[in-house]
Amino acid sequence: MSKRILILFAHPRFEKSLNNSLLVNQIPASPNYTFHDLYERYPDFNIDVEHEKQLLEDHDVIIWQHPFYWYSAPPLLKQWIDMVLEFGWAYGPGGTHLQGKLVFNTITAGGQRSAYSKDGYNRFTINELLAPFEQTARLCKMSYLPPFALHGTHRLTKEEAVETAGQYRRLLESLVHDHLPVDQMQSFSYLNDWVINQTL
């Protein structure tokens, strides 16, 4: 049985984001992939928790795909985490429904990769800044993978964007395989690097 992948997409102004549509267009048209557009589905932030829980149950790999606004996710994704990951269901006593699932963030960020380092102007690495997501995953007994990132969106050329989009497609395609090398994937700081490593 191949794995099923759920892309939880959160972008308040998707119609204005070329890079995100580029990434979203990479999602293979196959029943194994579910693209879930949170801002389109819940314009008034009124999240249907039962529906979301069912979606999570039905999938093995969860992707939080969003722009990296202010070193975090847009508000609706935070709302989603607050509402859906319930005590006694996702964590705490009896909170085992997400156990063993894979989860990671796919982000688009304005700054270059070099800016996200101890010496860069953002002072922290992307992995450090994503710590709340990582810990959320851990508390829910999920395996957290490093992020897939599209950097420098403000200065990106078309070719660079298309190249990264191609990596994303290869990543998505490989996620359906039953035996993913999770440990190997976790040893990279970005999933982009793992994909490049695989191709070589």
């Binding site: 102004r13 204005k16 606004y69 403000h154 200065r155």
Partner: peptide
């Protein structure tokens, strides 16, 4: 008038 906060076009032009 749109929300500029989420409009990367604006930032891109500024940069």
């Amino acid at each position: 008038e749109y929300d500029h906060a989420w409009d990367s076009e604006e930032i891109r032009e500024g940069l």
